[in-house]
Design a protein around this nucleic acid. Structure first.
Lengths: 107, 107
DNA sequence: CAATTATATGAACTATTATTCATATAAACG
DNA sequence: CGTTTATATGAATAATAGTTCATATAATTG
């Protein structure tokens, strides 16, 4: 079975700005859709779509309480992974490609 | 500057099956384009395109030796990150949701 | 029950990304 | 030199993913 495809899908699922923001908020605490929508100032349906994508990759789980649906990280270590990734990226100055391109063009 | 966008870009760059395979090979040792092409059994131009994407995110660096160009990971901790991610994903049974999609694709 | 609130969904559209193909460059070698 | 080998590149196309809009569902409240 293509494990590599699963891993790639997992990384791509995290690698979308809005979803990454959602995950960082959920790393702090469980949150419902409406709160996420207001915090991120995006359309509610967009947040729902992204939450579904995250759920389909088992990155988040949901819990309904009355009308509201609360989402949280499936595992706290996901927060650690994101932090590690961010730290490594910053430390190594990764993804500075735009700037490199500017320099190259300027030469 | 939108750090979150950089981080998302970084994750997406890693989150592509062929690039992930390339990275796993480079985690073992430095390799030139031709060897990567043969090992992965893909078109040479495709491998070059992916290597460029990785280079633009500072994930790999190149070194020319004669006609050949050798690529390696910018930092060994990248290998660790990939391993951690894979381990966590497997342990949590993440991304097992897409089995139906595999059937659909039939690859 | 009707109205309101919270969330989800699907279709259409748009944007981004991956892949192929043809070709370019550049080193090595006879 | 001309030829072969190794790699890169750009344009065109194909595939995938993100966003919006309209609407659906379902819980809550008066």
């Amino acid at each position: 079975m293509p494990i590599i495809e699963d891993q790639a899908r997992f990384l791509r699922c995290i690698g979308e700005p809005t979803r990454l923001q959602i995950l960082k908020l959920l790393a702090e605490s469980e949150r419902c859709v409406g709160v996420l929508t207001r915090l991120l100032n995006k359309e509610q349906s967009l947040i729902s779509h992204h939450l579904r994508a995250l759920k389909e990759c088992n990155i988040v789980t949901e819990r309904q309480e009355g009308q509201k649906v609360y989402y949280k990280l499936t595992d706290a270590r996901l927060a650690g992974l994101i932090i590690d990734c961010e730290a490594l990226m910053n430390e190594l100055l990764l993804c500075k490609c735009k700037e490199l391109n500017y320099e190259r063009k300027g030469n």
